[in-house]
């Protein structure tokens, strides 16, 4: 290895080779799939709420990709059917996530559709689950002496209410974020069951044969 040029050329070729397999071919396969019938684009409030979700880094604790029953009890936990590539047709940035410090949220809207519950939980997760380690987001809310017309009040158990008797109302950011969360519902039938990693199902079938 006494010459730099062959080394650089071969190194580049290898990376291109990998890019073809990991980027270009899957892109072709995924993008050629039709958008599922049950999947709607995000509306204006959901889009703003999704931007909040991204900006606050919710993805670092919550995945959005239920696994198959052959691999893990995600569906049994009420997190929904295994997701497929078509379920994310409108997602940019994607929010698949790599951690489950908290539960999977791809179908949180179907599981927990109450706006009031979501607002309380965002203001103080420990008001609902005492052992929760989710951050509270007080800066998405406003504490004032009394609610004005149009304000959305946050329902709180006595120990989490402001001591001076003032009320907690949701700022627009909190309402948007909740609009996004309760809109997360991909319980319609899977459009492209092959566009996901079915490696565990195949292994299970192989054992059965």
């Amino acid at each position: 290895m006494n010459r730099a040029l062959p080394l650089i050329l071969l190194a580049t070729t290898i990376l291109v080779f990998a890019t073809v397999f990991l980027v270009i071919l899957p892109a072709g396969q995924i993008r050629s799939a039709a958008i599922p019938e049950g999947l709607e684009p995000y509306d204006a409030a959901e889009t703003r709420g999704r931007a909040q979700y991204v900006s606050l880094g919710c993805v670092y604790c919550h995945s959005q990709q239920p696994r198959a029953p052959e691999q893990a009890p995600d569906t049994a936990r009420g997190w929904g059917r295994p997701s497929t590539a078509s379920d994310y047709a409108f997602d940019s940035p994607h929010l698949l996530g790599t951690m489950r410090t908290g539960p999977d949220l791809l179908n949180i809207g179907a599981r927990m559709p109450s706006r009031a519950w979501q607002l309380t939980h965002l203001y103080q997760p420990r008001a609902i689950h005492p052992t929760s380690i989710m951050p509270s987001y007080p800066f998405l809310f406003e504490t004032k002496p009394e609610a004005a017309a149009g304000d959305v009040l946050v329902q709180l158990p006595p120990e989490y209410r402001p001591e001076d008797g003032s009320v907690v109302v949701a700022r627009p950011e909190a309402l948007d974020l909740v609009a996004y969360l309760v809109g997360l519902d991909r319980t319609y039938p899977a459009a492209t069951p092959d566009l996901r990693d079915n490696g565990y199902a195949e292994a299970r079938e192989g054992e059965a044969e």
Partner: peptide, 11 residues
């Protein structure tokens, strides 16, 4: 992305 929404062959 093992077990995720990516075609089996890539995984």
């Amino acid at each position: 992305l093992i077990g995720g929404p990516i075609p089996t062959w890539v995984v």
